[in-house]
Amino acid sequence: MSLSPEQVRQVAHLARLQLNPEQVEPYARQLTDILGMVDRLSAADTAGVSPMAHPLDMVQRLRPDVISEADRRDDYQAIAPETQDGLYLVPKVIE
């Protein structure tokens, strides 16, 4: 499986990464190498094997439905790049 520069650009767009034009070529080569290594998986016989999402054979624990968080907006927004009137600011969202 090889990845073309165009595919690299598509994946970068999906992942919202701005790539410098000169990065695209080396990334395409490196990602192709990595996928080449990963392609060894296709040879494994996994017929009838159930996928393993997690090492733990446990089930989800449930927490009681209680409010345990106080309002700490000022603390949380102290590290925000841009806020106004308690809102996080972003460039205008066009729906």
Binding site: A44, V49, P51
Partner: peptide, 10 residues
Amino acid sequence: QAQKVRRLIY
């Protein structure tokens, strides 16, 4: 496929 092989490794 990786998740299945993960099971085999486990």
